[in-house]
């Protein structure tokens, strides 16, 4: 149950954290030694064209030397106009436009992956949790621990090596074949799907064991509870106790993990999209970082932080609703 105090405290956290993230975002370009405009121009052109420096300073909001006024302007632009500035490398596109056009790809790729891996994780975790202590369970758990320890980007390269080069069943990279034109045609949609298969498979393989292990641990803890002994004493069939009793309660903490995982969609997109050159937010961030496109880097980081904060907030709320025993610390 969500009490008023719980709601107020959690909301305050979320707002304070968001504010800190925004402040970091505002301060970072100003922390670079020297004038950021000069630094950027120098990195791009290796000298400083005089007209350009003024222009950049204006775009950065570096018009005054008063940090307070600059911060006020920054906040005003952000909240009133959702203005995150102009991108350097995709000039004249704005940061907001770029995020908007790349976001759907990320939401599709990571959304599908997390959905699949959480469902798979819960089912497999229930199975091994119910058989905890057996030979098959300990082997499976060990394999899962190994899988969670694999660096994602490494597994992705190995999979590309195996399934796109050696046995070319999947396309190498990209979000769709360059030969098809985007649109609601069958050839475009099937191209999108085939291009997303290998990234999704690698993501699911590296992420579902974590869900499964959480589910396993909570299942094991449920086993000690009295109500399960009661259910056994009543002579209920084992599979009914497993599915309708133990799993129902064990799924609570896993639910929070899943909600959090959805919040980390954008944050987690980095590895998969870079390795597969998939045109989502993660790939955009990579491009921005490698081309010193500071406004774009800042804008994407801000968006990532805000989604994570919102997911944390929602997970806290959901947990309180699902499990009435949760009390505010």
């Amino acid at each position: 149950m969500i009490t008023r105090r719980y709601l107020v405290v959690r909301t305050t956290y979320a707002i304070v954290t968001a504010f800190i993230a925004i402040t970091i975002n505002f301060l970072l370009p100003r922390l670079i030694p020297g004038n950021p405009a000069d630094v950027i121009l120098f990195a791009n052109y290796h000298y400083i064209p005089p007209g350009k420096a003024k222009l950049l300073e204006a775009q950065f909001g570096l018009t005054t030397n008063n940090l307070g006024i600059e911060f006020y302007d920054y906040l005003k632009q952000l909240f009133l106009h959702f203005n995150l500035g102009l991108s350097f490398s995709y000039y004249p596109a704005t940061v907001a436009q770029l995020i908007e056009s790349h976001l759907p790809w990320t939401l599709y790729l990571l959304g599908v992956s997390i959905l699949l891996s959480s469902v798979l994780g819960v089912i497999v975790g229930r199975w091994i949790g119910w058989r905890a202590g057996s030979r098959s369970e300990s082997v499976t758990s060990s394999i899962f621990i190994g899988l969670t320890s694999l660096p994602y980007f490494w597994l992705a390269i190995i999979f590309i090596l195996l399934f796109a080069f050696m046995i070319p069943i999947f396309p190498l990279a990209g979000s769709f074949a360059i030969t098809v034109t985007p649109g609601l045609t069958i050839s475009f949609i099937s191209s999108v799907i085939t291009h997303s298969l290998l990234p999704i498979i690698t993501l699911v393989i590296t992420t579902f064991p974590a869900f499964a292990l959480t589910m396993r641990n909570t299942m094991v803890n449920q086993n000690k509870e009295d109500y399960l002994m009661m259910a056994r004493a009543r002579g209920l069939p084992r599979h009914v106790i497993e599915k309708k009793y133990a799993a129902r309660n064990a799924i609570l903490p896993v639910t929070t993990h899943i909600v959090l995982a959805f919040g980390y969609i954008v944050a987690g997109a980095f590895f998969v999209e870079v390795v597969f050159s998939y045109q989502g937010i993660g790939y955009l961030l990579y491009k921005a970082v490698t081309s010193y496109d500071y406004p774009l880097v800042d804008g994407i980081f801000l968006m990532i932080t805000i989604t994570v904060i919102i997911a944390n907030f929602l997970a806290d709320m959901l947990y309180a609703i699902l499990d009435p025993r949760v009390e505010l610390r």
Binding site: I20, L28, A267, F270, L285, V289, V297, F301, T305, V308
Partner: peptide, 19 residues
């Protein structure tokens, strides 16, 4: 600590390394 825990670590590492 609560606030630090919420901030997504890897993206933060990424942008710090650019600056």
């Amino acid at each position: 600590v609560d606030i630090l825990l919420i901030l997504p670590t890897f993206p933060l590492l990424v942008i710090l390394s650019t600056y």
